[in-house]
Amino acid sequence: MTTFSAFRVETPDAGKPPECHVRQLQFDDLSPGDTIIKVAFAGVNYKDALAANGQGKIVRDYPRITGIDLSGHVVSSANQQLKEGDPVVVHGFGLGVEHDGGHAQYARVSSDWVLPLPDGLSLREAATLGAAGYTAALALHWMEMCGLSPDQGEIAVTGATGGVASIAIDILNHCGYQAVAITGKHAAHDYLKKLGAARVIAVPDLEPSGPLASGQWAGAIDSVGGSVLSWLLRTTKPEGVITAFGNAGGANLSTSVFPFILRGVKLLGINAGGPMALRRKIWDKLAIEYRPDHLNDICQVISLHSLPQVTKQMLERKTTGRNVIDMAL
């Protein structure tokens, strides 16, 4: 039988913290599914870092192969619409959390989760985008559905050096928006400017001086939450649109109704999921109208064996952009 390498989180004994190892596995070791994919590339996401280090109660059933997104080729499938050799993308649906994920040379999933790779994207580009790129594009998609356009003013992007935010800045610049990158990492200013940020600013004083402050932003893409999101609500212009999908700055939100009822600010929650029809639409946008221009600058290619070190660096906020595993390394 075929054996392959996989990064798996395991619990050696009851009551002890999880441990992660690169194991040699067979197909029968994988979660069930009707489709086998030879993984070419897989992204490393913050959720993967939490899972690999036994934090956040991300994984509840061990052992588990991490990796919430992947790109690769179909090996076999019970779905006749998926042919051997077809290039595909998979993300979400509990992948890497409730179901063995993409941090392995092979994955077995439900065919209902499999998205054909859009024309114009390579497998490496698709993995660089991954769940992060989908989230960034979905945020802009819903903002534009609420009437946002480039002529309305600057768009704030918080947690700017993270994977989602880096891609968001790149997409915004590509689409003619003025993105303002907000970061506490001074050393990353050149990186963010290269992606297309019109300005890079430090995290401001977040102490509230009232329910509303001077309106600065036509919109915002927020990956931080907490007091940063509260500040964005106070400082967004009338009819502005904010998208939120992160909680690195805290899960609680302190605000008032005034941004909503006096300025008409719209706060949209973004979940990196959705029905397959929506996923196809967003991935098609990523391949054409939302296609980032600087994916090579955002992507750092790593090997499966370097994953433990990278996930620890990610939890320590020492990474920038997207780390992508090349399964051939």
Rank of each mutant, 00 (worst) to 15 (best):
T2A: 03
T3S: 15
T11Y: 02
D29F: 01
D34M: 08
I36W: 02
I37E: 11
A40N: 12
L50F: 04
A52D: 14
N53W: 07
Q55V: 02
G56L: 05
S77M: 01
D86I: 00
L95C: 11
V97Q: 14
A107T: 13
R108S: 03
V114F: 01
L117N: 12
D119C: 01
G130L: 04
G133I: 00
T135S: 12
L148H: 04
Q152C: 04
G153P: 09
I155E: 09
A156P: 07
G162A: 06
A165C: 10
I167C: 04
I169Q: 03
D170F: 02
A179N: 08
V180N: 08
G184S: 15
H186Q: 15
A187V: 04
A188E: 13
L192Q: 10
G196L: 04
G196F: 05
L206Y: 08
L206S: 11
P211S: 13
S214D: 13
S230R: 05
W231A: 07
T235D: 00
T235W: 00
T236D: 02
E239R: 13
G240D: 10
G250F: 03
V265I: 12
L267V: 04
I270Y: 02
A277G: 07
L295C: 01
C299P: 08
T311Y: 05
G321W: 01
G321T: 11
D326R: 01
L329M: 10
